[in-house]
């Protein structure tokens, strides 16, 4: 059955409309779970707030398990969807650059948009930076980035097949890892709460 649009079961206008509706849900959830608060985002790295990891891993797991089961039941063919190709070198280097940007800037592109439109001035500066960065990247692409961006090409690689285990087993193991991660980060957050008095907690502006 699914995905509908790549199989022409959905006309392009409705597809864009559904994109906007899904975006509304996405933006709502980002804001509602506190992703527009840069201090909450930074909290993941220092342990005083575990929201990011909870939301992130729960979402990834729900999507992963849901799509896998739907695929197995024949309701959606994942092979027909956007399946990212792996270019491990640029993704690793790009990821490290993004990590630095995350710690310095305190946002990522999706959260910054939600934050900027709800009045976070720092997020507006951040978005300006993102666009400048993209323009800079485009203008210097041919001379500077092209060979790096296309290096380390591996094609469409499934991580379970890459490791060499059954996909279902990988999903199960990842579920366990995620739940352990939740517990660890919750403990970390609780230890912060114990160390600090109430004024310090208010000071974090969560």
């Amino acid at each position: 059955m699914g995905p509908l649009y790549p199989q022409e079961l959905l006309n392009p206008e409705y597809n864009l409309l559904i994109g906007a509706l899904i975006g509304i849900g996405f933006g709502f959830l980002l804001e509602a779970s506190g992703f527009t608060n840069t201090r909450k985002l930074a909290g993941i790295f220092y342990g005083y707030d575990a929201t990011v990891i909870k939301v992130f891993f729960t979402a990834a797991l729900t999507g992963l398990i849901g799509l896998f089961i739907l695929h197995n039941m024949g309701w959606i063919d994942i092979t027909l969807t956007f399946y990212p190709k792996t270019f491990w070198i640029p993704t690793l280097i790009g990821g490290i650059i993004m990590a630095l940007g995350f710690v310095i800037g305190g946002f990522c592109p999706g959260t910054s948009l939600s934050a900027a439109v709800t009045g976070k001035v720092d997020a507006m500066a951040f978005i300006g930076g993102v666009l400048l960065g993209i323009f800079g990247f485009i203008f210097t692409y041919d001379g500077l980035w092209q060979s790096l961006r296309t290096s380390g090409k591996m094609g469409k690689v499934n991580i379970a097949q890459w490791i060499g285990i059954k996909e279902g087993l990988f999903i199960f193991l990842f579920t366990i890892i995620a739940i352990v991660t939740f517990v660890v980060f919750q403990k970390w957050q609780d230890s912060w709460k114990r160390k600090m008095d109430d004024s310090d907690i208010d000071d974090l502006g969560l």
Partner: peptide, 27 residues
């Protein structure tokens, strides 16, 4: 604000090089 701008700049480059950000690439 300066830090946010610099951070954004890094994201701009990183996302294009790495083919996506926390939502598109990772999630």
């Amino acid at each position: 604000l300066y830090l946010a701008l610099i951070g954004g700049l890094l994201w701009g480059i990183g996302t294009q090089l790495g083919r996506g950000c926390t939502s598109g690439l990772v999630l």
